[in-house]
Amino acid sequence: MDALEAKVIRKTRLVTAVSEIFRNGLIYGGGAVVIIHCDEDDRMVWIDCRDTGPGIVDMELALSDGYTSGGGLGRGLGGAKRLSDEFEIVSEPGVGTQVRLAGRA
């Protein structure tokens, strides 16, 4: 994002969103793999985060503010979605969860 000369606020938003998602992957997914891709033409930074944890059964519930299954505040997933310009989450119970999000620079 520095290469794209992004504004501080854009960087902060995206890094915070990634932090939320990665932490979810660590705590609930038992570890996560993150891939970062920078699209210079579109000035977008894409982040792909996947884990092989238990997955999410009720997605709508998980995305709603205030829901937590792990003793947190329950704002992580919904908050990360609000902070991203693109957000996509796919989860299969028993297989794992994959989150793809992007922020405009």
Partner: peptide, 14 residues
Amino acid sequence: MRPAVAMTLVELGM
């Protein structure tokens, strides 16, 4: 608290 941090926290609902 930095401005960008304040904005982000508010958006996270904190």
